[in-house]
């Protein structure tokens, strides 16, 4: 297959970037978008041009490394799925494909299509854990978890931490990411003890990183490769109000 590519090239964080045109010819329809970029890079290299920098690792949609905006959509048009799970046969012959990084202030561009998402790590560091010291755990089956709760928790825990939710949100909000972690842990009995502190710290960290607010646009849910439901944002809001109420009543 043949395509016209428009790819974001930017030397480093400080330089200005722009879209550059490339012709992608003879691309096997079974190749993934990232494999198409591999092929292009091989050609650029042999022409003496600098290959396009883009991040990826597992290439099966679970590590959350790839972070491309394709034709204006985070991870491209084939939802749900990460950019590495997007196959060229999903595009039309001759189509123009615009490839950019995820764009938001909290994820500065490192080079070309590579961004810095350490803000997400810092939100988890603020409290996205259960403080269970190694060796102190009780016998596993002494903690019963109703199947329904375990399933809901798993649905939230499935987040791959790619940041597409924030990239797709017109407000650049990381609420879905934060909501997923808060809900995962708040749904389980093991998460109960730190429930209040966790949600308050994580929401504060999220604000401090410069992410915006949620105004119920649901773009996040639409692009999420792990199909995290936006209803978890409602849960986050409930958890947060509950926590602030508990705190203000001095509990």
């Amino acid at each position: 297959m043949n395509f016209r590519l428009r790819v974001w090239r930017q030397k480093d964080r400080k330089s200005r970037g722009r879209l550059i045109n490339y012709d992608a010819t003879d691309i096997p329809p079974q190749a993934s978008l990232l494999e198409m970029l591999d092929i292009m890079n091989e050609r650029l290299l042999l022409r003496g041009e600098e290959p396009i920098a883009f991040d990826s690792d597992c290439r099966e949609g679970i590590c959350g490394t790839c972070s491309l905006t394709v034709n204006g959509e985070a991870h491209g048009p084939d939802h749900p799925g990460a950019a590495c799970e997007l196959y060229m046969r999903k595009f039309k012959e001759g189509e123009t494909i615009v490839i950019e990084p995820f764009r938001l202030k909290s994820f500065p561009i490192v080079k070309d299509l590579v961004i810095d998402r350490s803000a997400l790590d810092r939100i988890v560091q603020a409290g996205g854990f259960i403080s269970a010291r190694t060796g102190s755990a009780p016998e596993a089956n002494s903690i019963l978890v109703p199947k329904h709760d375990a399933d809901v928790s798993m649905e939230a825990a499935a987040c791959i931490g790619c940041g597409a939710c924030a990239a797709a949100c017109p407000n650049a909000s990381a609420m879905l990411f934060t909501a997923a972690k808060v809900s995962h842990l708040a749904t389980l009995p093991q998460g109960e003890t730190e429930r209040v502190r966790r949600v308050v710290s994580m929401v504060h960290a999220m604000d401090a990183e410069g992410f915006g607010n949620c105004t119920n646009i649901y773009e996040c849910e639409a692009v999420c490769p792990a199909e995290i439901s936006a209803s978890f944002i409602a849960k986050l809001n409930r958890e947060y109000s509950r926590a602030t109420l508990k705190r203000s009543s001095g509990e």
């Binding site: 259960i130 060796g135 755990a137 199947k147 375990a150 928790s153 995962h184």
Partner: peptide
């Protein structure tokens, strides 16, 4: 398994 359950790993349940 004990450790992971305590950390909140959502293993499959009956």
């Amino acid at each position: 398994i004990d450790q992971c359950v305590a950390q909140g790993v959502p293993f499959a349940r009956e």
